[in-house]
Design a protein around this nucleic acid. Structure first.
Length: 157
DNA sequence: ATTCTAACA
DNA sequence: TGTTAGTA
């Protein structure tokens, strides 16, 4: 089932790669010398280009046709790779933030419940509080009732 | 690897 | 005419 083609597997000799990219072999060598492409090598010395390399060559071609010189193309490709890394990082951080938010929600909810039961305990063991409970509990920290929780302390007393 | 050429300003 | 990209 794994007849999947690895886009990064180097397979094409420079002549074939040049043909597919609509370029001359010399041009490919020049791009390599300037660091625009890094084709693999056989055990000898002959260059082997992957589909990913071919895609990159076409990208270079398109950027050139848009009027950029080789320096500009190199810059664009570099920035694009940085952008890709930055976007991956943003995705990871978003995931992390969401996980932490969920965890905090759980912790806050647990704290609300602990506070509620503690208040009930104080009411039963120490009599009525000197200060009304509603003034002790900040508005945003009132316990949240759950549908499955029939022991809501606010109604049980 | 070097040289030659086309395009461009 | 100098520079650049691509070619022979």
């Amino acid at each position: 089932m794994s007849a999947e083609r690895d886009e990064t597997r180097p397979v094409f000799m420079i002549g074939v790669a040049a043909e597919m990219a609509g370029m001359h072999p010399q041009t490919l060598r020049m791009y390599e010398r300037r660091g625009l492409v890094q084709p693999g090598r056989t055990k000898g010395r002959t260059r082997l280009y992957s589909q990913a390399d071919l895609a990159r060559l076409r990208r270079i071609q398109a950027l050139g046709e848009s009027g950029l010189n080789l320096a500009g193309i190199e810059r664009v490709l570099d920035l694009e790779q940085q952008l890709e890394a930055a976007m991956r990082r943003v995705r990871d951080l978003e995931r992390d933030v969401q996980a932490r938010m969920a965890e905090h929600e759980r912790a806050i909810d647990a704290t609300r419940r602990a506070m509620s039961t503690e208040i009930v305990h104080v009411r039963r063991t120490s009599g009525p509080p000197a200060v009304p409970i509603k003034t002790v509990i900040p508005a945003g920290l009132r316990p949240v009732p759950r549908a499955t929780d029939s022991r809501d302390p606010r109604r049980s007393s």
